[in-house]
Protein backbone atom coordinates (compact mmCIF):
# COMPACT_ATOMS: atom_id res chain seq x y z
CA UNK A 1 0.00 0.00 0.00
CA UNK A 2 3.06 2.21 0.00
CA UNK A 3 2.16 3.72 -3.35
CA UNK A 4 -0.65 5.68 -1.78
CA UNK A 5 1.01 8.82 -0.59
CA UNK A 6 -1.66 9.67 1.98
CA UNK A 7 -1.49 6.29 3.60
CA UNK A 8 2.28 6.39 3.60
CA UNK A 9 2.67 9.85 5.10
CA UNK A 10 -0.04 9.43 7.70
CA UNK A 11 1.19 6.04 8.82
CA UNK A 12 4.76 7.31 9.03
CA UNK A 13 3.49 10.09 11.22
CA UNK A 14 1.26 7.88 13.36
CA UNK A 15 3.36 4.81 14.02
CA UNK A 16 5.93 6.44 16.35
CA UNK A 17 3.09 7.90 18.37
CA UNK A 18 1.43 4.52 18.55
CA UNK A 19 4.59 3.01 19.98
CA UNK A 20 4.89 5.90 22.41
CA UNK A 21 1.27 5.49 23.46
CA UNK A 22 1.82 1.78 23.98
CA UNK A 23 4.76 2.50 26.27
CA UNK A 24 2.67 5.07 28.12
CA UNK A 25 -0.14 2.58 28.61
CA UNK A 26 2.35 -0.03 29.75
CA UNK A 27 4.04 2.04 32.41
CA UNK A 28 1.11 4.22 33.41
CA UNK A 29 -1.17 1.26 33.98
CA UNK A 30 -0.76 1.64 37.73
CA UNK A 31 -2.36 5.05 37.76
CA UNK A 32 -4.97 4.94 35.05
CA UNK A 33 -6.63 2.42 32.78
CA UNK A 34 -4.09 0.28 31.03
CA UNK A 35 -1.50 -2.35 31.65
CA UNK A 36 0.40 -5.09 29.97
CA UNK A 37 -2.40 -6.53 27.82
CA UNK A 38 -3.52 -3.26 26.37
CA UNK A 39 0.04 -2.09 25.74
CA UNK A 40 0.89 -5.35 24.04
CA UNK A 41 -2.16 -5.15 21.80
CA UNK A 42 -1.44 -1.54 20.85
CA UNK A 43 2.18 -2.38 20.13
CA UNK A 44 1.12 -5.30 17.96
CA UNK A 45 -1.40 -3.17 16.07
CA UNK A 46 1.28 -0.57 15.36
CA UNK A 47 3.47 -3.32 13.92
CA UNK A 48 0.49 -4.62 11.95
CA UNK A 49 -0.10 -1.16 10.47
CA UNK A 50 3.56 -0.98 9.49
CA UNK A 51 3.29 -4.37 7.84
CA UNK A 52 0.14 -3.42 5.96
CA UNK A 53 1.73 -0.28 4.54
CA UNK A 54 5.30 -1.32 3.92
CA UNK A 55 5.05 -5.02 3.34
CA UNK A 56 6.12 -8.07 5.25
CA UNK A 57 9.75 -8.00 4.15
CA UNK A 58 10.52 -4.65 5.69
CA UNK A 59 8.53 -5.47 8.81
CA UNK A 60 10.49 -8.67 9.26
CA UNK A 61 13.71 -6.72 8.93
CA UNK A 62 12.67 -4.69 11.94
CA UNK A 63 11.07 -7.52 13.89
CA UNK A 64 12.92 -10.68 13.01
CA UNK A 65 10.85 -13.87 13.37
CA UNK A 66 13.62 -15.36 15.46
CA UNK A 67 13.44 -12.36 17.82
CA UNK A 68 9.67 -12.74 18.11
CA UNK A 69 10.02 -16.40 18.99
CA UNK A 70 12.51 -15.53 21.70
CA UNK A 71 10.36 -12.70 23.05
CA UNK A 72 7.29 -14.93 23.37
CA UNK A 73 9.16 -17.10 25.83
CA UNK A 74 10.92 -14.18 27.49
CA UNK A 75 7.70 -12.57 28.66
CA UNK A 76 6.45 -15.71 30.35
CA UNK A 77 9.89 -16.19 31.87
CA UNK A 78 9.88 -12.66 33.28
CA UNK A 79 6.54 -13.36 34.92
CA UNK A 80 7.59 -16.71 36.31
CA UNK A 81 11.00 -15.36 37.22
CA UNK A 82 9.45 -12.59 39.29
CA UNK A 83 7.46 -15.21 41.15
CA UNK A 84 10.53 -17.35 41.77
CA UNK A 85 12.52 -14.30 42.83
CA UNK A 86 9.94 -13.68 45.54
CA UNK A 87 10.30 -17.31 46.56
CA UNK A 88 14.07 -17.02 46.86
CA UNK A 89 13.78 -13.72 48.70
CA UNK A 90 11.92 -15.49 51.45
CA UNK A 91 8.30 -14.89 50.56
CA UNK A 92 5.69 -17.02 48.86
CA UNK A 93 5.40 -17.42 45.12
CA UNK A 94 4.45 -14.05 43.61
CA UNK A 95 4.47 -12.36 47.02
CA UNK A 96 5.99 -9.15 45.80
CA UNK A 97 6.61 -7.51 49.10
CA UNK A 98 9.45 -9.94 49.70
CA UNK A 99 11.40 -8.22 46.95
CA UNK A 100 12.41 -5.25 49.09
CA UNK A 101 13.42 -5.03 52.71
CA UNK A 102 10.60 -5.29 55.24
CA UNK A 103 8.92 -2.09 56.23
CA UNK A 104 8.12 -0.91 52.73
CA UNK A 105 5.68 -3.49 51.40
CA UNK A 106 4.14 -0.95 49.06
CA UNK A 107 7.41 -0.49 47.17
CA UNK A 108 7.73 -4.23 46.75
CA UNK A 109 4.19 -4.46 45.41
CA UNK A 110 4.89 -1.64 43.00
CA UNK A 111 8.08 -3.25 41.74
CA UNK A 112 6.53 -6.69 41.39
CA UNK A 113 3.42 -5.46 39.61
CA UNK A 114 5.56 -3.42 37.23
CA UNK A 115 7.76 -6.40 36.37
CA UNK A 116 4.83 -8.73 35.91
CA UNK A 117 2.97 -6.31 33.66
CA UNK A 118 6.14 -5.88 31.65
CA UNK A 119 6.34 -9.62 31.11
CA UNK A 120 2.69 -9.78 30.09
CA UNK A 121 3.20 -6.89 27.67
CA UNK A 122 6.18 -8.58 26.01
CA UNK A 123 4.38 -11.87 25.59
CA UNK A 124 1.19 -10.35 24.21
CA UNK A 125 3.10 -8.16 21.77
CA UNK A 126 5.23 -11.02 20.52
CA UNK A 127 2.38 -13.52 20.27
CA UNK A 128 0.04 -11.21 18.38
CA UNK A 129 2.80 -10.02 16.06
CA UNK A 130 3.86 -13.59 15.45
CA UNK A 131 0.30 -14.65 14.69
CA UNK A 132 -0.18 -11.75 12.31
CA UNK A 133 3.08 -12.47 10.52
CA UNK A 134 2.14 -16.13 10.25
CA UNK A 135 -1.16 -15.25 8.54
CA UNK A 136 0.48 -12.78 6.17
CA UNK A 137 3.34 -15.12 5.33
CA UNK A 138 0.88 -17.91 4.61
CA UNK A 139 -0.99 -15.61 2.27
CA UNK A 140 1.92 -14.83 -0.02
CA UNK A 141 3.09 -18.41 -0.50
Amino acid sequence: MKHHIIVRVISKFLIPFMFLFALYVQFHGDFGPGGGFQAGVIFASAIALYTLVWGLDRAEQAFKPRLIEILIATGVMIYGGTGLLCLFAGGHLLEYRALVEPGHPQHGEHLGIGLVEFGVGITVTAVLTGIFFAFVRRGRT
Partner: peptide, 14 residues
Protein backbone atom coordinates in the same frame (compact mmCIF):
# COMPACT_ATOMS: atom_id res chain seq x y z
CA UNK B 1 -1.18 -2.22 50.46
CA UNK B 2 0.32 -1.28 47.17
CA UNK B 3 -0.04 2.49 46.77
CA UNK B 4 -1.55 1.97 43.34
CA UNK B 5 -4.75 3.89 42.62
CA UNK B 6 -6.04 1.53 39.94
CA UNK B 7 -7.74 -1.36 41.71
CA UNK B 8 -7.94 -3.40 38.54
CA UNK B 9 -4.17 -3.41 38.10
CA UNK B 10 -3.56 -4.40 41.69
CA UNK B 11 -6.07 -7.23 41.66
CA UNK B 12 -4.92 -8.43 38.28
CA UNK B 13 -1.23 -8.58 39.00
CA UNK B 14 -1.05 -9.04 42.73
Amino acid sequence: ESLIPNFVTTILAS
